[in-house]
Nucleic acid binder design. Structure first.
Length: 275
DNA sequence: AATCAAGGCAACCGCAAACCA
DNA sequence: TTGGTTTGCGGTTGCCTTGAT
């Protein structure tokens, strides 16, 4: 299983792409479709390695890519999904079809990581956590209280499924040594954010995604409510807490109606003197 | 106006999984 | 089944832009 030698060849151009190169690449892909990247440099005359061509296409030239500022909803989704999945940028980007994994990764590294860095120490303050928890209890119904732990149990085997402690990977490895174990208090303090969106949890109207994300939308609000109720019955059999499935979380994540709520949180974060 | 530092982002690197003959 | 090739992905680098001095 050797490394691809394509980029080791002499005479291969590196660095920023010119508009001319872009045009060549786009017209080739339009004609032949994406894939078989090894043939692209030879067939187009581009002095680029196949890998570079593929990257240029997927990260920049591919149709439907949305550029520019991330919306509060997108921001919220990234924060949520990063907490759930860790640095699985491709997986996270699959929930944001218009964004590339590179975009998401860059946005996380340059914007969100800083935000959360400010956010996290503040959350370690017990009173802060309590305040958040109170907010949770004040705004959320018991049926909508969720934990990341239960969600991740379904979402990814790579993530700790222990309900009392999950791996929060918002800190880079070099700083935390591979993820922090989050305390119950800390974890619960996050929940208020979850519950700010409980309307969406209960009244999701979002569309379905493709198989990669992996949920099937009922397309019916009532049906979704029934889903939750049945799930509650099952889950609460052995446990007093209700943990919605990952598909429920996905429903929330993909619901644009949450944008306002996320913005609300962002505003709160901005306004808070702690941050 | 010039210089420097920090931030942002496109692109590259290298590993690993998937694919295929 | 095996080994070579291709593709996907995450981490990192380096250049360009912007803001501060």
């Amino acid at each position: 299983m050797g490394r691809s030698p394509c980029c080791d060849k002499v005479g291969i151009k590196k660095g920023p792409w010119t508009p001319e190169e872009d045009i060549l690449l786009v017209s080739y892909v339009q004609e032949h479709g994406p894939g078989n990247w090894r043939l692209v440099p030879t067939n187009t005359g581009l002095q680029r390695c196949s890998k570079s061509c593929r990257l240029r296409w997927t990260n920049y030239l591919r149709p439907g890519i949305k550029r520019g500022n991330f919306t509060p909803h997108e921001e919220g989704m990234i924060i949520h999904l990063q907490a759930l999945l860790g640095n699985k940028w491709a997986a996270i980007a699959s929930y944001l079809p218009q964004r590339t994994d590179n975009d998401v990764k860059n946005y996380w590294n340059t914007h969100l990581k800083k935000k959360l860095k400010k956010f996290q120490p503040a959350m370690e303050l017990p009173q802060m956590a309590q305040a958040c928890l109170n907010k949770t209890l004040a705004t959320g119904s018991s049926s909508t209280i969720a934990t990341y732990a239960s969600s991740t149990e379904i979402a990814s085997p790579n993530i700790c499924s222990n309900q009392s402690a999950i791996i929060l990977q918002t800190q880079p490895k070099d700083e935390s040594g591979g993820g922090d174990l989050m305390s119950n208090e800390h974890f619960e303090s996050i929940l208020w954010f979850e519950n700010m969106n409980n309307v969406a949890w209960e009244k999701s109207t979002c569309g379905s995604t493709t198989s990669k994300g992996g949920f099937q939308d009922s397309g019916n609000d009532d049906q979704f409510s029934v889903e939750i109720t049945q799930e509650m019955k099952q889950k609460t059999g052995n446990n007093s807490k209700f943990y919605p499935s990952f598909s429920s979380l996905e429903k929330w994540l993909l619901d644009d109606s949450c944008a306002g709520k996320v913005e609300e949180m962002n505003q709160w974060m901005e306004l808070s003197p702690i941050f």
